[in-house]
Design a protein around this nucleic acid. Structure first.
Length: 679
DNA sequence: GGGCGGTACTG
DNA sequence: CAGTAC
DNA sequence: GCCC
């Protein structure tokens, strides 16, 4: 239930729902219009609807966005922002109802308010995620709910749940307040949490990153969609080129450490001390390299690896692909972060709310001890404050974070999240589409509106199933070689690095980021000195790729601005494209596997700033944010086209290598495999 | 209480 | 200017 | 939401 398959609507489009979700005591109405076959898709208002003078249309006009947070924004974010509360009026005076609704809004959730004319409880339940009541008898609650209550699965809670959340300063589990459906084991809250905590401890002790027992469904999904298929595919590639069989094993690890001391990162299987870090670029320089790129966990680097630091900046903290100690907690908090992203933009402070979760998550991911052993230690981690500390405690007490669990159970959240896969659809677009009744990616597509002039929505939908598949390392290399070859034909002497997740050692990537520049060791540097030459080269290569039918779509090509302040700035040319790579050499026998469309970013830069560009395109996202903050603190401005001193903007420093930037910023060099600072 | 990554493009 | 992508 |  937590993930969407492309093309399968998560919920069948139902009948009209005449219910509003509004803030506090407001009594506006706003329907969530059904789509289905009779979808009122704005673009093709063909059939009988000359002017849909329906109630929907009128009402929608008045409340543009029923799902966004109330105008008077909440004073606290305690309930999941997607929480929609229906207050049962029975036995409650109007004043009491109003007070409860105010509290709901105060805690950051939404009220579901019936429109005065239509209104059955059942219809309200279609929208609510939770019902509050003064009633304590399950039988009576059932009667008040009407027939459909059971099928909706919306629980009825005693309203004191709200005040309990307020007091705790964090959303609390609702089982102890649940009236209907009656919980089979009344002792649930006590014993369940006890056993959950036991299992959490067991998990931590055995160092399993595995799933909390409470949510087997979610974890299964992740494991399946994350690796299984790609693994199979990766093995296919490996077989073709006689290489390694993948993939998702433990990667980038901590060395063992003694009690009481901070563990120091130790690179695997190498004698340290000599030489500087060996770049793990793994891009085989020549096609001739019959030997495949070694799997990421075997790649070694030399030189000292920086020890963990309790820094607010992720760029100081070695962070492997998965935390060896606290990954389950990281995954749990990530659920909350994503929900904050989906609801960000309500009042200007929400964007920074999700960012704060991102920083805390990254700090916990890098923390080199199991927090399960002593959750109180979380308080000391820079980036974990009062609120997230409470969530950590809750996680180890109950085995889950109540807000995260609520979010996982919320269909609307899952649907909107799936909308983010669509190119050009972000949080605002996802919310809007959902509010207009979209429940599947097809629905989203038929709502129309194109976000890229060159990649229309229809086309986006057609190739989306391919784009959602992650790309095995071997194919990343294959694609990068194709592109590099085209550059070589037109302008010999180019070097390149595959950046992004690939460079950070991930077994599979969402896209391929190829950074190229003239190689000073092969050709004169001045060769491509003018912007025009550079841009022309890129377009020639794109043309060639198009002719070969390797490139199928141009998503966008960035037009770099030539000036920064008064000075000419070295810049990158960036092409975002879609390719359909030919089958690998030797794949003829296995013709059953058609190639997939892949997203590729080509970044053409200059040798003088190659280090900055590679650093800027390697990620992870959190690492990028924090290295920029670090740059600011040190009086620099960093971006992927170079590093400049704040005092002399326009003078871009030469940074041919990544190490140059680390040195200038006073950050110990962090190997790419330890920059995995996102969840 | 201010600030949070920084830039380019599209509608 | 808002929204989105990198 | 968290840090300075």
């Amino acid at each position: 239930m937590s993930s969407t398959r492309l093309g399968v609507p998560l919920r069948s489009p139902g009948r009209a729902r005449l219910v509003s979700a509004t803030s506090a005591t407001s009594s506006q109405t706003a329907p969530s219009s059904p789509l289905g076959s009779a979808a009122p898709a704005p673009s093709r208002a063909g059939s009988g609807a000359s002017a849909p003078r329906t109630l929907h249309a009128l009402v929608r006009a008045r409340t543009p966005d029923a799902l966004s947070a109330p105008a008077g924004s909440p004073s606290k974010r305690i309930l999941a922002p997607s929480t929609r509360v229906h207050v049962l009026p029975d036995k409650l005076g109007q004043a009491h109802i109003d007070a409860l609704r105010q509290l709901v809004a105060h805690l950051g959730a939404l009220n579901v308010v019936r429109s005065s004319h239509t209104a059955s409880v059942a219809v309200s339940l279609d929208y609510a995620t939770v019902v509050l009541s003064e009633i304590r008898a399950p039988k009576r609650a059932e009667r008040a709910l009407g027939d459909e209550a059971e099928s909706r699965g919306v629980p009825v809670l005693h309203h004191s749940w709200l005040t309990a959340c307020l007091e705790a300063g964090i959303q609390v589990p609702h089982e102890a307040y649940q009236i209907y459906p009656r919980l089979t084991a009344p002792a649930a809250s006590a014993s369940a949490s006890a056993s959950a905590s036991a299992s959490a401890l067991k998990r931590a002790a055995s160092n399993e990153p595995a799933s909390p027992r409470r949510h087997p469904e979610k974890i299964l999904r992740l494991e399946e969609s994350g690796t299984e298929e790609e693994q199979e595919q990766d093995e296919a590639y490996a077989a073709l080129r006689g290489g390694y069989a993948s993939a998702e094993e433990e990667e980038g690890g901590y060395g063992s450490h003694e009690e009481g001391t901070l563990p120091v990162m130790v690179p695997r299987g190498i004698d340290k001390g000599k030489g500087r870090a060996l770049d793990v670029d793994a891009s085989p320089s020549r096609r001739a390299s019959a030997s495949p790129t070694p799997p990421p966990h075997v790649v070694a680097y030399e030189g000292a690896v920086p020890a963990w630091q309790n820094s607010a900046n992720a760029c100081f903290r070695p962070t492997p692909i998965r935390s060896m100690f606290n990954q389950p907690l990281v995954d749990e908090l990530e659920v909350i972060r994503v929900s904050r992203v989906l609801f960000e933009k309500n009042g200007a402070r929400d964007q920074h709310n999700s960012a704060a979760y991102g920083r805390a998550i990254s700090a916990i991911k890098a923390y080199p001890h199991p927090l399960a052993k002593d959750p109180k230690k979380a308080k000391e981690i820079a980036g974990v404050g009062a609120k997230i500390y409470k969530a950590v405690l809750q996680f180890y007490e109950l085995g889950y974070v109540a807000e995260a669990r609520a979010i996982r159970g919320d269909q609307s959240h899952a649907i909107m999240k799936s909308f983010l896969d669509f190119y050009g659809v972000g949080p605002a677009g996802a919310r809007k589409a959902y509010q207009q009744g979209a429940r599947s990616l097809q629905d989203l597509c038929s709502l129309g509106g194109s976000y890229s002039d060159r990649l229309g929505r229809e086309e986006c939908l057609r190739i989306l199933p391919d784009l959602l598949h992650r790309i095995p390392r071997r194919e990343c290399e294959f694609i990068a070689e194709l592109i590099h070859d085209e550059f070589e034909k037109i302008h010999p002497g180019m070097k390149y690095t595959i950046c992004g997740g690939y460079r950070r050692g991930k077994a599979t990537s969402g896209d391929v980021d190829v950074v190229l520049a003239p190689d000073p060791e092969k050709a004169p540097v001045g060769d491509l000195k003018s912007l025009k030459h550079q841009t022309r080269l890129l377009h020639q290569v794109l043309e060639a790729l198009k002719k070969k039918a390797v490139m199928t779509h141009i998503v966008s090509v960035a037009q770099p601005s030539e000036y920064y302040g008064e000075a000419i700035v070295p810049h990158c040319d960036i092409a975002e494209i879609v390719v359909l790579p030919p089958s690998l050499p030797g794949a003829g026998a296995d013709a059953t596997k058609r190639p997939r469309y892949r997203r590729v970013d080509i970044i053409l830069t200059r040798a003088e700033v190659y280090g900055a560009t590679v650093l800027g395109w390697t990620g992870s996202k959190q690492f990028e944010k924090d290295i920029r903050r670090q740059a600011r603190q040190q009086g620099y401005k960093f971006h992927s086209t170079g590093l400049v001193r704040l005092e002399q903007p326009g003078v871009t420093l030469d940074t041919p290598q990544e190490q140059d930037i680390f040195e200038l910023l006073g950050v110990p060099y962090m190997p790419p495999h330890l920059r995995n600072c996102d969840a």
